[in-house]
């Protein structure tokens, strides 16, 4: 075991084999890592998303933790409700995890997520972001990146809008902990989930979740593509404490051009050199802004 890259990776498996995720699904890896970090005394709330299917049909479950399936737009508030019920019954140690896709987070679930975050209800919210409505067959969401192909943003009319900056929206709620993470960086994810669990209040993790069918990549490239998202700075890994103290948790050894990330994916195949140049410029700018935020003074009260 001398060379294990993951000496601190929790051993207990809380996700069963036999689940219904596609080959190479980032969402299933993320669930496994997150549950390992939180442990068995955790209740999982799942709104409509790929995990509605992955978790298995009645009368089965692919998790060893309790699961509450809830309507699409209610992940956060349902988690709040579970937590409220646990608290009033004195079960204060049990953790509540909302595990939602980008549609359920960025779009239809944004209102209830905002409500939960504003009340600072004591839950952990993990958004596994595969950047489109994958479970319904790859329709654009507000998490879909600019220029990406989806079935509702066809190649000759690809998405004109930038991906919504969800992390900043959550940070603006001044909740104790907001972080990005990626399926390609499991220990970073595990550590962030553990860190999140140590805070009281609403914790939000935005996790890059590669989707082979939706991104038009072959399944074995899942981690490679997600890793490139971070190494190109398209999806940097960082955390924000109390909505204002920024910390970058991973700095690539070598920053790669965004083209390396884009060219591996069928959903970007139609991009022109000008498109790529824009994405590169925008990415560089966002990275600069993020680094700038890391230097900002924080409120001392």
């Amino acid at each position: 075991m001398m060379h294990s890259h993951y000496p601190d990776y929790p051993k207990e498996e809380l996700m069963h084999s036999g689940h219904l995720a596609c080959q190479g699904c980032g969402g299933s890896m993320i669930m496994r890592h997150v549950l390992k970090a939180l442990g068995s005394d955790t209740i999982v709330v799942i709104p409509a998303c790929c995990w509605t299917i992955i978790a298995g049909q009645f009368p089965y479950s692919s998790l060893k933790n309790p699961i509450l399936h809830t309507p699409f737009e209610t992940a956060a508030v349902a988690a709040s409700g579970v937590k409220a019920a646990l608290d009033i019954q004195g079960k204060t140690d049990t953790k509540v995890l909302a595990f939602a896709g980008d549609g359920g987070t960025f779009d239809i679930g944004l209102q209830s997520l905002s409500g939960t975050a504003e009340r600072n209800d004591d839950i952990i919210y993990v958004c596994y972001d595969n950047e489109a409505y994958m479970n319904t067959g790859i329709q654009r969401s507000s998490a879909t990146p600019i220029k990406a192909w989806t079935t509702t943003t066809p190649a000759d009319d690809s998405k004109a809008e930038m991906k919504k900056n969800m992390i900043e929206i959550m940070a603006a709620h001044r909740i104790p902990y907001v972080a990005t993470a990626s399926a390609a960086f499991p220990m970073d994810l595990v550590e962030k989930v553990k860190k999140a669990a140590s805070f009281k209040g609403t914790k939000f993790l935005h996790v890059m979740s590669p989707c082979p069918p939706g991104w038009k990549i072959s399944s074995e490239m899942s981690i490679e593509v997600a890793r490139l998202a971070t190494e190109t700075h398209i999806f940097p890994l960082y955390e924000i404490f109390d909505g204002e103290r920024y910390n970058i948790t991973f700095t690539p050894k070598k920053v790669k051009p965004v083209l390396e990330y884009l060219r591996l994916q069928g959903r970007f195949r139609h991009l022109t050199p000008e498109d790529v140049e824009f994405i590169q410029k925008r990415t560089d700018f966002d990275w600069k802004m993020l680094n700038h935020k890391c230097t900002l003074e924080v409120f001392e009260g």
Binding site: T52, A55, G56, Q57, P66, I67, H69
Partner: peptide, 11 residues
């Protein structure tokens, strides 16, 4: 968590 089940799954 002591008696874990999934509720309201796909039917």
């Amino acid at each position: 968590p002591q008696s874990p089940h999934a509720f309201n799954s796909l039917a």
